[in-house]
Design a protein around this nucleic acid. Sequence first.
RNA 1: GGGCGCAUAGCUCAGUGGUAGAGCGCUGCUCUUACAAAGCAGAUGUCGCUGGUUCGAAACCAGCUGUGCCCACCA
Length: 879
Amino acid sequence: MTDTNQRPDNSGDHSAAETLPTQYTPAEVEGPLYERWVERGYFEADAKSDKPPYTIVIPPPNVTGSLHLGHAFEHTIIDSLTRRKRMQGYEVLWQPGMDHAGIATQNVVERELAKEGKSRHDLGREAFVEKVWQWKAESGGQISGQMRRLGDGVDWSRERFTMDEGLSQAVQTIFKKLYDDELIYRAERIINWCPRCLTAISDIEVEYQDDDGELVSIRYGSEADGVVVATTRAETMLGDTAVAVHPDDERYRHLVGTEIELPLTGRRIPIVADAHVDPEFGTGAVKVTPAHDPNDFEIGRRHDLPSITVLDEHGVITVHGPFLGLDRFEARSTIVGALRAEGRIVAEKRPYTHSVGHCSRCKTTIEPRLSLQWWVKVGPLAQAAGDAVRDGRVQIHPKEMESRYFGWVDNLHDWCISRQLWWGHRIPVWYGPNGEVVCVGPDDEIPTGEGWTQDTDVLDTWFSSGLWPFSTLGWPEQTPSLEKFFPTSVLVTGYDILFFWVARMMMFGLYAMDGTPPFHTIALHGMVRDQFGKKMSKSFGNAVNPLDWMDAYGSDAVRFTLARGANPGTDVPIGEDWVQGSRNFCNKVWNATRFALMNGATLDGPLPAAEELTAADRWILSRLNATVAEVDALYDDYQFAKLSDALFHFAWDEVFDWYVELSKATLIAGGPQAEATRRVLGEVLEVTLRLLHPVIPFVTDTLWTTLTGRESVVVADWPVADAARRDVAAEREIETLQQVVTEIRRFRADQGLNPGQKVPAQLDLTGTALTAHEAALRSVAKLQPAGDGFHATATLPVAGAIVALDLSGTIDVVAERKRLAKDLATAEKELAQARAKLANDAFLAKAAPAAVEKIHARQAKAESDITRLTAQLAALPEA
RNA sequence: GGGCGCAUAGCUCAGUGGUAGAGCGCUGCUCUUACAAAGCAGAUGUCGCUGGUUCGAAACCAGCUGUGCCCACCA
């Protein structure tokens, strides 16, 4: 784990400890530290560098938004990945930027206008768009401020916005290319219309939920030869142009080809036979409204039926007559009333729960509507997007998510990309006075002259974000950055936008970049939830502003808590108590460093050879290198929860508790041994800080610079595991020591002794691995030398060592006898189980050797426990 | 309707065949000079139910129950 950076002379400055207060105060450190990182250019990515590239593009947040815990979570993952790679010597680019988020942003600004009693139409298109830009200028800085608070190591000099000049050019370029390749076309179809947002939306922007509706049965035609149809949307009957039945349905066969009277309208409509109709459902006869239902539209096409639009863009009835001007829901009940008056309702309304589409932006019930829109023909694009994952060029983590991905790209309908909005990339198509249609590329001349107008629609916001991995790098220009940093390394995002964003990037990326996928790994994370696993929402009152927690506990604490919850692809619960726990951990790191500095931990000179070190030193170096290897493997597998947990336990339990305690005796004793330990203490701490840095950057950098006197851990080298420092013997030795110490402590606790109270003790360590550890053992277990008049009142044989304690007059024999008896019973039971197992021939024949070995070990341990406990019992004085 | 997942300590979750784990919470004792945002010790689980495979199942298989998510043109 050599650090190749130069070691300055002032490392391990003892006086530094006095400058460290006893508690870590994040608020004083984080802000200035972040600005220093940025000023020094640590996060700037150099396209001319000859280091290997590592690129992650930020999932661009909505420009109007503010950061929530979900962002904090995602950014913690990305920041950890990129910080580690930077330390490993990669040329790292974390590409920042924001999304114009068409419909969402337009809604926000419209709401602002509404407060002044205005609508966007009062301003007009140009002034409204100007207003949105203004709004962006005011609120766009909010997110970058929050990202700085979080410590995000992004290259701010490369910040991009989906409506930037360059990115707009990318949009226009690919639109033109798709148009020329006939992968973009304009067609009239049934689309999902939001009567509140007044725009078409794509299929995935529709959220289906079970709504309570009413199914009414209406008789069409005369009483004698009528047909009964059932519907939940009675108002659409005004637009019916047929009744459909199944071709094989005997009940209706004689009616096919005849006409029937459509109630309330005086119109006569045909009865057609169509295989789409399910004869088992309802009456087996379906009303057909081609202008307001996707299935009916298809039936209409097959039977050459006319389409009659009966609802306008607001969902208001447009057909002349008694229902003109009624809202769709009003019209529904009014029309049912009118039908009932005519005796057309044959079965009363019955409650019916069915799946109804809602606008994902405003929750308004979607109205399917016939409309002329622009479409992307996704067939070939989706095929390529699916193949790239199928053939392994792109990997999805966790793998279970692949089936979802395939299910989508393999069953995709064409993508409706035009939006009747004002905020977004305007469709680059111009219409001439004589019906000419011209798609304009970035280098083309815009047609001028009388009668030429541009399409008024804008593109779906996901159209431009689908280009993000290369548009941000300058595409369509062949920039050095594009050359250096594309394709990106890994995409980190939530599984909730797998279809919205990831799949679109795959389709557009493969198409635009000649078959090169935009990233080779997709790492999907879950959603942040509250401490009970409930979804966070403002209305439920459990939403948390991450800034509040960062203010109270520090950014590192929030980051560490999120990282510890980050099991791949699963949701992440987080609660304030847990953030406190992480804050405590940061403080622990702080104080451990304080201890090290106060005790002269040093980085001067080479790390002493194993022969010059105590077992504790060799043990902690062994564990350190094991941890480096473990953490590395977990990083490469995107296992943030596990690697954070490994770091937590290594740092706190092994370094900060055991090693620090064990080293105290050595340090106090002084001499060459103490010198070696000071060096090891410095080494272990320094490497641990480097290991922790990607997850908790602020506290580690503060401490690391203090400890080393060097510039910053941000640009230090990532630790490399050194197998030569692994020391199984030392690990065994220290494990034994821990066992003995724990047994003594337990005895002391049972006897109600103060933890700090020194107890006279005689130690007999002959024949054990602990002969060299008497000082450490006495120090950690608070045992003082046996002086004159020592009288052993308790004897603890543990692991071959015999510890005699003088507790004259204070020992609680009854309690101890009880505890020992209980433990003895447990050990005997254990021994019996192990023996039974070893007497089982089937087990011995089939079990793996390691398993058998384990049982032998269990038996041995039970036997030695019995010996020890029996001896302890015998050694107890009479009650 | 189809698909995928989950059910383990009070809570949130790890644990893909060999004696049940973590964090937080809980109990007791301590301000033992790095840290009380701490230290030490401790308690707590028929691993959803029922069968099956196996010498051995929390883990593998089947069914059941509960629960979550995704998809779908259920008039």
